[in-house]
């Protein structure tokens, strides 16, 4: 269950925004990078049409995160995207913060009405699967356990892929 930030200090909002921006950046590049080497994510992305745009947005005014499928690959577009074929809106900063820090998993986020989704809901489920597959490459099990209904078993090269993501995939955006 999520722990809620209840103390409101001056500057909290700014701090939250910065945190969310940072994590958006990590998530954005990590998913794009992982979609090249992780076969199960690759498969999900393959089923999306070329030019498919995904946007995550914190209401009412950002931060934002965007991906687009270009040349068969999922490209991270930073906050540049103005339109999305699939838009995941976080209803407020706190919700985004809880989901991104990550204290609350995506499924729970949906259940608690913290996000609303605009677009093809089937694609939203596909995206959720991608993120569920990605999480164990980003976080150790004790964190993943809280976020997902079950920890996906990764048999292959988890540690290397974690290192690859943090040392190459995310910093260099490849």
């Amino acid at each position: 269950m999520g722990r809620h930030a209840t103390i409101v200090l001056p500057g909290t909002m700014v701090l939250k925004k910065i945190t969310i921006k940072t994590i958006f950046f990590i998530l954005g590049r990590a998913l794009s990078s992982a979609s090249k080497f992780e076969p199960r994510i690759r498969k999900e992305v393959a089923s999306w049409e070329e030019g498919f745009k995904i946007k995550m947005f914190v209401l009412p005014s950002g931060p934002a995160l965007g991906w687009e499928k270009q040349h068969g690959k999922l490209q991270y577009l930073g906050s540049k995207l103005d339109h999305g074929d699939l838009i995941v809106n976080f209803k407020n900063l706190t919700s985004a913060f809880l989901l991104m820090t990550p204290q609350v998993g995506l499924a729970q986020g949906f259940a608690e009405h913290r996000v609303n989704v605009v677009g093809d809901l089937n694609k939203a489920i596909s995206l959720t699967r991608c993120i569920s597959i990605l999480l164990p490459y980003l976080y150790p099990d004790f964190i993943v356990k809280r976020l997902l209904k079950e920890i996906p078993q990764i048999k292959y090269n988890r540690l290397y892929r974690m290192l690859y993501l943090y040392l190459i995939g995310i910093p260099l955006g490849i």
Partner: peptide, 13 residues
Amino acid sequence: AIDDPSIIFNPKE
């Protein structure tokens, strides 16, 4: 079925 939105609310993957 696995792409249906309701699956997200199921207790088990």
